[in-house]
């Protein structure tokens, strides 16, 4: 391995460790890690500053911010992974079909993608959630309805490049069906850029969920979503900045980490890319 590879690999491990410890673990293990019940309110402790038992203090309703932050990771994680999984499955399948079959199928699917991309993404998500009603499931649906386009376009482009390669021709010559060629011979060869795209997409989905919740269109009131916590803190920003800083920092940290992860993965997986 050359120097660039090891350096990139080290960065990758550091990022994975950070995300694992700082985001995945709290998200998955929230009920065991959180020191307090994130839903328990005590109005008498409204806006109480950080203390030993409550390291980040209380919000306006008197709920412990630290515990809510930990549970918030769970929501971001869930929405990020779910929205990206759904988008990726739909997008990659359609991209494969478009790229492999070509012709009017390709034309139709890509124009459909164009139509979706013509809308400003967040605005469309807001409109969708407004129509379907607020709630995390609807947020996931709205984000997936937008997210698949990026995957479809990327997959199609990669398929076009791989389609003409000899191992694909060989498989076709041996009489393999279209699905078999697409899934067994093409898909494994286009996974790397899709993985990079997925990492960016998770960052974008987490940010979008926070935005929608901030606007009151995401999780129902009371759910410890980072966006909603940020929105709660907005009204008391001057008196009690300790309410809004932690969720704000958490959103920034996680989104930044996923974006850097995407970059690092891109560097490592793409042999042609120079740093």
């Amino acid at each position: 391995m050359n120097g660039r590879g090891t350096q990139g690999a080290r960065r990758l491990w550091i990022l994975l460790a950070l995300l694992g410890l700082g985001f995945l673990a709290p998200g998955l293990l929230a009920p065991w890690i959180a020191p307090h019940d994130p839903f328990a309110l005590d109005l008498a402790l409204s806006l109480a500053p950080p203390s030993a038992a409550y390291p980040l203090g209380h919000d306006e309703q008197g709920a412990g911010i630290f515990s809510r932050l930990i549970y918030g990771a769970r929501i971001s994680l869930m929405v990020g992974l779910a929205a990206v999984t759904v988008s990726a499955v739909i997008g990659v399948l359609l991209g494969l079909v478009a790229g492999y079959l070509g012709g009017w199928v390709d034309l139709f699917l890509m124009r459909l993608v164009d139509v979706f991309l013509a809308f400003p993404g967040l605005l469309l998500a807001i409109a969708l959630v407004a129509v379907m009603g607020p709630g995390l499931t609807n947020v996931i649906i709205a984000l997936s309805a937008l997210g698949w386009t990026a995957f479809a376009r990327l997959a199609r482009g990669q398929v076009l490049a791989v389609r003409a390669e000899e191992h694909v021709l060989a498989a076709q010559a041996l009489g393999a069906g279209a699905w078999r060629v697409m899934l067994r011979h093409i898909l494994p060869n286009i996974l790397a850029p899709l993985l990079v795209q997925a990492s960016f997409a998770i960052a974008a989905a987490i940010l979008a969920e926070a935005t929608l919740s901030f606007l009151g269109l995401g999780a129902p009131p009371g759910t410890p979503s980072w966006g909603a916590m940020l929105s709660d803190g907005k009204h008391v920003l001057l008196e009690a900045p300790h309410v809004s800083i932690p969720p704000g920092a958490a959103i920034m940290g996680v989104v930044l980490a996923f974006n850097m992860l995407g970059d690092t993965l891109g560097d490592l997986l793409d042999p042609k890319r120079k740093r």
Partner: peptide, 14 residues
């Protein structure tokens, strides 16, 4: 979506 109304709702929820 009134802020006070939502907070009141959350307290009753609790």
């Amino acid at each position: 979506t009134d802020r006070s109304a939502v907070i009141q709702a959350r307290v009753i929820q609790n």
